[in-house]
C-alpha cells in the first residue's frame, strides 16, 4: 500500500518544509519514499503543490489525480483548486486562511465564498481548522505547516515519536520547540 499526500499552498507559506517533514518521518519508519517539489518561478507567491508518497515501493513521485489519500491545504482557495487530487474516501485537512490571488486583488475575479460548504459536500472527510491562530499561539505564524502536519499525523500509520523525531531533525535548532508546540496543537486539535 502506498500513501499519497498532496500539499497545496501559496509560494512562501512553507509547503516545502511540510513535505520534507513527512518525507523524513516516512523514511525513519522504514518506508520507501518519494517527494516531489516545485522550485523556481512557481514559488513567487504562486499556487504551489508538492507530493509525498510512501509505502513498500513507490513508483511515480507524482500522485495521479483522484488518488491522494490526504490533501493538506494551507489556504482555502488552494484546497478548492487541488481537491480533485483526492481519492474516494480521501481526507482534506485545510487551513481556513484566505489569501487573495492577483485576479481577486485587481477585482477581475471574485474569491469564491462557498468553498467550505462546497468541499464539505464533496469530500468524504473534511477538516477545516484555523491553523494560523494555533500557529501564532505556538510562537509564530510560520509554524502553520507543523500544525497541519500534527493533525494529519494523528490519523497516520506512523507513530507520534517518529513524527517528533523528524521535526527535530529537519527544523532549525532555534525553531524546534516552537514547531513541536505547533505540532502538538494540530495533533490534539478537535472541532
Amino acid at each position: 500500500m502506498v500513501k499519497s499526500i498532496v500539499i497545496a499552498g501559496v509560494g512562501g507559506q512553507g509547503t516545502l518544509f511540510a513535505s520534507t517533514i513527512i518525507g523524513e518521518a516516512a523514511t525513519l519508519k522504514g518506508f520507501d519514499v518519494k517527494v516531489s517539489e516545485v522550485h523556481g518561478m512557481a514559488q513567487r507567491g504562486g499556487s504551489v503543490i508538492t507530493y509525498v508518497r510512501y509505502g513498500e515501493e513507490v513508483i511515480s513521485p507524482i500522485i495521479p489525480v483522484g488518488e491522494a489519500d490526504v490533501l493538506i491545504a494551507f489556504e482555502q482557495l488552494e484546497a478548492l483548486r487541488w481537491a480533485h487530487y483526492l481519492k474516494k474516501g480521501g481526507i482534506l485537512i485545510s487551513n481556513t486562511q484566505k489569501i487573495d490571488p492577483m485576479p481577486v486583488i485587481t477585482s477581475s475575479m471574485q474569491y469564491p465564498d462557498d468553498i467550505i460548504s462546497e468541499l464539505t459536500g464533496r469530500v468524504d472527510n473534511c477538516i477545516f481548522m484555523d491553523a494560523s491562530v494555533l500557529a501564532e499561539q505556538s510562537g509564530s505564524i510560520r509554524t502553520v505547516n507543523s500544525v497541519l502536519i500534527g493533525r494529519m499525523a494523528r490519523d497516520s500509520d506512523i507513530e507520534k515519536e517518529i513524527w517528533l523525531e523528524a521535526l527535530k531533525k529537519i527544523a532549525k535548532p532555534a525553531f524546534i520547540d516552537m514547531n513541536i508546540k505547533a505540532f502538538e496543537a494540530g495533533y490534539n486539535y478537535t472541532v
Binding site: 504562486g46 492577483m102 464533496r122
Partner: peptide, 20 residues
C-alpha cells in the same frame, strides 16, 4: 480518474499566478 469536483465550474476558481 475519480473526481470529487465533477460538475463544479472550475472556471470560477481564480488562478494564482506568481507575483513579484
Amino acid at each position: 480518474p475519480y473526481n470529487c469536483m465533477e460538475g463544479y465550474d472550475m472556471s470560477k476558481v481564480p488562478g494564482r499566478p506568481p507575483v513579484m
